[in-house]
Structure formats: structure tokens, C-alpha cells
Amino acid sequence: MSVLEVKNLTHTYGGNTPFVNDAVKGVSFTAEKGEIIGIIGHTGSGKSTLVQHLNGLLKPTSGEILLDGVNIWENPKEIRKVRSKVGLVFQYPEYQLFEETVFKDIAFGPKNMGLTGKELEKRVVDTCNMIGVKPEYFEKSPFDLSGGEKRRVAIAGVMAMNPEVIVFDEPTAGLDPKGREDVTEIIANYRRCTGATVIIISHSMEDMAVIADKLLVMNKGSLQMFGTVEEVFKNGDALREIGLNVPIVTRVFYELKKAGVPVPDNVFTVESAVKVLEKLRDGDGNA
């Protein structure tokens, strides 16, 4: 059974104010356990609105969201329970840090779920171990950390709730390459340790090609494509039509193909590109 099922989700922002946009129209998709799904699309394509429905921060105008087969809005009073099952890490999450110490800040989520005492402490320590927040940081003020470290602590704050689905809105925005690598590793590690489903909003096709299993393409509030990375990136023309593109390395391979080099059209990462080209060189082009 799918962990998460979104059925015909529509959200229109209320009122006739002139500032309305970023709506979502009739989006349906399912997420299986342990999958990493990348959501790509332009700013204002409805990505952020879509993900805020997954943990019940926004209520659909119509359509429904099933978590483990149950409509999350079946009992609106229980919506907070949904939020611990579907974690949501916002853009620039370090701006939500507020506690005196790193430990207390990470404990905020699990505490809201009702954990106390030893259980709470264990949860925080386990999360920190998993994602590499060192014990010497526990009593530090989160505001004394560097930008990358703050981001790590903020992400830990959501992971400490042990969500079975965790959603990230541009988790690497504003970080330098080292910081981006760290965050990507934390995410991959969380999936490995917990088997959770991961959903990531990103602008980087290159990053998505490396980390995601499936891609969901949003355009003007509608779901344009949903499939494996290969299925989506093979539709380069359709992506370009809505102003998106395939990874740069894939575009290099388009050029190779145009020039008559017999390369396959499912090369989306640098690693696979190097492998393919080596084979081509060593095997006299009969790869």
C-alpha cells in the first residue's frame, strides 16, 4: 500500500484580492515507502502550496490526501498528529530556531508530540547521532553556529519527530557546495536509517538526477509529469516547453548524439556519463 496518496487535490486561495496565485489544480500522485521523490517546477508553479497540504498545514479546496490509507482530514482535531507523521522542512529552516540550546531546539518537535523525560532525551540523542550533530553542540546556543550548522540543527528538529514521510522545500538553498553536500547526505542517511519516504522540492535537475527515484513536474498549478527520473528526463522537449530542462550532462549527450556518437539517451549523472564514455572508448563504440 502507498504511504501517501494525493487524489485530485485542488487549492484556490480565497477572496478576490489581486494578490492571488500559486494555486494547485487537480493534482494526483502516490508515494511509496522509502522512495525519494523530487518536485521540480518554476517559482509560483504551486510546488510550495502542494507540499503544505501533505501535512495538513493547508486544507484542500477539494480532493483528498490519504496517509497510510486514511484521509488526513477525517478528524480535523487530530491534524496535529498528521504533522508528526509527515515532517515538513521549510526553505531556510534555520530561521525557525528559537531555543536557548541546540538540544532544546531539536527537542521541540518530539516534545509537542508528547514525549517526555528519558524517552525525549533518547529521541534527540538518536537523531543527533544519525545526522551528525555532535554532543559538544548540545548545550550551545543555536545562534552561535555557522550557517551550515544551523541548517543541520533545524533539519534535525524535524527529523527528531521520526516522520514516515519527510518533505523538504529547497533544502540546499543559499548554501555553498560543501553545505549542499552535507545536507544531501543527511537526507539520504535519514532514508537509509528509517526507510522513510522523502519528497524534495528543488531547482537543480543535476542534484535530482543523483538523489531522486521519481520526479514530479509542476507547471502553473497542474501536475505535468510524474514518473521515474528516466521517464521524466527522456521528455526533454516537454520540459523545455515549460521552461525547465534536463541535467547539463544530458544536454552534452544530446550534442554527442547529434554528432553521430552512439550514446544512450538515459545518461543523467556525471558518473554514468563517465562510465558510458569509457565503455565507448574501450569497446570501440560497440557498447
Binding site: L57, R83, S84, V158
Partner: peptide, 13 residues
């Protein structure tokens, strides 16, 4: 609004 949503996502009531 953003911060409120972020804290709500961490289970804040």
C-alpha cells in the same frame, strides 16, 4: 506566517 507554519509543522499548537 512562514515561521508560524514552520513551527506548526514541528507540532506546535
Amino acid at each position: 506566517e512562514k515561521i508560524m507554519n514552520a513551527q506548526k509543522a514541528r507540532g506546535a499548537d
